[in-house]
Amino acid sequence: MAITAPAPRPRPAAPPRVTLRSRRALPGALALAALVAVHVAAWIATEFSLPALAGGYEGMVGFMAEAIPPELNWSEVVLPGIQASLVTLATAIMGTTLSIPFALGLAVLAAHNATPKVAVYQAARSTLSFLRAVPDIVFALIFVTAVGLGPFPGVLAILFHNVGVMGKLWAESIEESDPGPVDALRTSGARRSQLVANAVLPAVTPQWVGLGLYRFEVNVRSSLVLGLVGAGGIGFLINGSIKLFRFDELFTYILIVLLMVIAVDQLSAAIRKRIT
């Protein structure tokens, strides 16, 4: 026969809602149970105990009492603290900025919609995973053996680790970007590099700037940690004040870090606002 009109169908009576819901509910319940089980196990593994925390408040009060008032001796604590925090900041700036070209290249190769070949994609992904898996502190140790002590190995450590993290974030934002403009240029005969440069990158730039600034904030904090392995900066002073139980100095350093982190946050918020 030719074209038939669909007969006005009678409304189906009482749809089988219950079975449908239970069929969907079962995996959900299982997932919930698994989630709860994982957290119970983690609770036990970490010896999490609120009573212990409450009972031990005296110790914390004592700690705070030692930290307050902060040691504000200008020439011995505050000035060195500020100088060291500038080193920390400089380390983060250098590490983040220098990682941009590498992160960019790897991000493009590691985005399935921009990579030229599956093999290249896999290689880029693996490289990024490796760079992420190695903690920046380990990179710092490796580079200390190569370039000696000081902030320079810290810069290299942040650079390498940041390529891994930022490259992955950037690759993901490429993969999530609208394929439309790329398709449009592809139909005009543009080649891969042209597509990446003229459609992909302009589209992801705002996200990339946001992610890059976020990474910079994180790297400021990472370079605090790197101070602990000889990369200098305020992390080194913090570690020293802990080892010598000078909590009043520690508090001063933390205040300096706080100011620095707030300043970086404000700056990146301002930049982000202008870019988008």
């Binding site: 439309g180 240029l185 005009s188 005969g189 543009a190 003229n198 302009p202």
Partner: peptide, 29 residues
């Protein structure tokens, strides 16, 4: 392929670039 150009409902221009830059991109081929 270059003989045929496509115009899309979703327009698919690079929104952050100027009109002229976008038009230039038609010549990438």
């Amino acid at each position: 392929r270059r003989e045929a150009a496509m115009v899309f409902q979703q327009i698919h221009l690079v929104r952050r670039r100027t009109a002229l830059d976008n038009v230039c991109c038609g010549a990438l081929g």
